[in-house]
Simulated assay, not measured.
Amino acid sequence: MKAQTKPSIFWAGIFLLVVPGLIHAYLLMPFPGSQDLNAITVCYYLEKLVMPLRIIGAIIVIYYFFKYLLKNSITGKIAKLLVFVLCLVSFYFTDVMFKAESMFEEPQTIKFSNAIYNKVPESMVVIGVVNNGIAKAYPLVYLGYHHKIQDNVGNEPVLVTYCTMCRTGRVYSPVVNGKRQNFRLVGARHYNAIIEDAATKTWWYQATGNAAVGELKGEHLAELPYEQSTLGAWLNKHPASLILQPDVHYLSDYNDLKNYDRLQSVDKDSVLKNKDSLVRKSWMVGIIINGQAKAYDWRQLDKKRLVNDQVNHTPLLIALEHDSLTYHAFNSTVKGKALHFKLDTAGTITDQETASVWNWDGLSTAGTLKGSQLNKIQAYQEYWHSWKHFHPNTLFWKD
């Protein structure tokens, strides 16, 4: 019977129809164990092969149906037809349910309002970008769902990104090889979003801007400066800022991220008794000075507010405002001299060397150094496991 029905032909076709797509979906989504594999190159080329292999598989199955299906028993016919239908159902899971572009859609409308007409609560955390005198704020809750907003700030193109799996934002120039590119969300590797530019089909890590695989492998997207703070703190500095408003098509998706911008995993973990324990999803503030990375434990920062430090011979001030959400990093050198800062019980920041008063934006507002401005250093909030993975030689500060 088996010799007459040739079941191996049928199963070979089913294998090609289903298995490559399932492997591809598994590797690009955070399923157990999938993100720990070094498989981005496999994912890249497998994506190009999935559809051709499906076509071959479909041809084989159709050939089998015409040639051998009638030779099967009634039970065999029903079983094979059911298997084929299940294969088609599996496409929903691999191509829709677990496909990044379907799970996290592009915004349908990108609308900004000024502070007067703004509907975003000032307590929400935003990524703020300033260019050519124009300021814009992008709430994390909206970015967290969409993963990226392709926009212009001050007549310059920007790619504002955020990955909830590693809890970090980056702002890049979307100009590749002299031309502005559209980017699509591919999926994730090592719990970090992967994006692809339309022209070269290169895959880029969101957390670093590095081209991991493709035509431009080894190159980097140009990073643009940004700040992460509450909207209220941002508007205090940039009262004319425009604020990204929620896209009404995705209100339920935004609601799924409610309180994402303010609660740590350890705070919600009833099993973990010591909330200061360092875990995979502990929040960090990360900086990179002349190639040397360093991470600062968020909970300890929240207790101290100000940290005087030095990395690669560069004096630093790391500051976390009283809202416990707005953070800063500065080069603490002024007029060639390293300053050391303290915060008194009244909330006033002064330097120990001159007793000048400073605000949270690094500007001296009173004293000998009045008018002096600390130079800002780009800093990132990120989960510990992500920062450590992408910066394996990182230093670590914990009070």
Rank of each mutant, 00 (worst) to 15 (best):
V186W: 02
N210H: 10
V171E: 02
A193W: 00
G187M: 02
G218Q: 08
I194G: 00
E196P: 08
C166R: 03
A207R: 03
R167C: 01
G178M: 13
T208D: 04
E215P: 01
T230H: 13
R167P: 00
P225E: 03
T208R: 07
T168E: 11
P174S: 08
E223C: 08
A212T: 01
E219V: 01
H220N: 11
E227L: 14
G169L: 04
A198D: 15
E223T: 12
L185F: 09
K179G: 04
W203A: 01
G178V: 13
T164H: 03
A198P: 00
S229I: 12
V213Q: 08
K201I: 11
E223F: 06
R180N: 06
L221I: 08
R189Q: 07
N192W: 04
F183D: 12
E215A: 13
N210T: 02
K179M: 06
W203R: 04
W203N: 02
L221K: 09
A199K: 14
T164F: 11
A222I: 15
L231I: 07
Y172L: 07
H190D: 03
T230G: 10
D197Q: 15
G187Q: 09
A211E: 00
R184V: 08
T202Q: 04
R180Y: 00
R180V: 09
E196N: 13
W204G: 00
W203C: 04
K179E: 09
